[in-house]
């Protein structure tokens, strides 16, 4: 489902003397449907970078990034947009809050963008929010005023609203208490069971051990130190 071949990435900082910072080289990875692969490596080794490359948020310098039949590294913007709507989900570390949109609609949005009727979308959103212990009285409020943990749970609910065949999860259990963590891991298990290919970053070892089928150490993709 997800297949990376020889992906490399560097940043060129034009306004700082054109400093070139290579961050990744030769990244190769395969994730099959129903598999959950955990990315590990020291902080700054490139775990989030790899995830952003797969999502198309970062431009790959070389290599191919196949998600289903689409090569994200070479695809047209509209192909990536379509991919993100229907195939590839991404739960980032931070919820980007749009002022005024109620939490329920934030979670329902991925369903609305694939054409789900609004009532059905909101029902599913309600179920997810309830499962993640967001009290109903908060559903009509914008998450701008929520606590970090509450925002993260809204973020997760949104990521799982639609059954994406491929999912990228960046620290989904960070800042969650034990009960909510268990719920999220349950969502991941359910996604695996329906055949989603998942890549996750978990700092929490126990969580990692529970849901990941194998691990990939991204420091293996670090650029070779200049001689």
């Amino acid at each position: 489902m997800i297949e990376l071949q020889n992906v490399s990435k560097s940043f060129t900082l034009h306004n700082q003397g054109s400093a070139v910072i290579p961050v990744m080289e030769g990244a190769t990875l395969v994730v099959k449907p129903g598999e959950c692969v955990g990315l590990i490596g020291a902080s700054g080794a490139g775990k989030s970078t790899l995830m952003r490359l797969i999502y198309g948020n970062y431009l790959a310098a070389s290599g191919s990034i196949m998600v289903g039949d689409t090569d994200v590294a070479k695809a047209e913007p509209r192909e990536i947009l379509e991919l993100r709507r229907k195939t590839l989900g991404y739960v980032s570390q931070f919820l980007r809050v749009v002022p005024r949109v109620p939490a329920l609609d934030v979670v329902a949005e991925p369903l609305l963008s694939v054409g789900t009727p609004i009532e059905e979308a909101r029902e599913k959103a309600a179920t997810l929010l309830a499962g993640l212990n967001i009290p109903e009285r908060l559903w009509s409020l914008s998450p701008t005023t929520f606590s970090g943990g509450e925002q993260q749970r809204v973020n997760i609910a949104r990521g799982f609203a639609y059954d994406y065949p491929a999912l990228l999860l960046d620290e989904p259990t960070a800042s969650l208490d034990a009960q909510n963590r268990a719920t999220v891991l349950g969502l991941i298990e359910a996604a695996k069971a329906r055949g989603a290919a998942i890549i996750g970053i978990f700092h929490d070892e126990a969580a990692r051990e529970q849901v990941c089928d194998r691990f990939v150490d991204v420091s293996g993709f670090s650029p070779k130190a200049a001689a």
């Binding site: 948020n57 913007p77 947009l81």
Partner: peptide
């Protein structure tokens, strides 16, 4: 390019 890509990973 894609908005989020141009803003998060600007090339120029």
């Amino acid at each position: 390019g894609l908005t989020d890509q141009v803003l998060d990973d600007p090339q120029h």
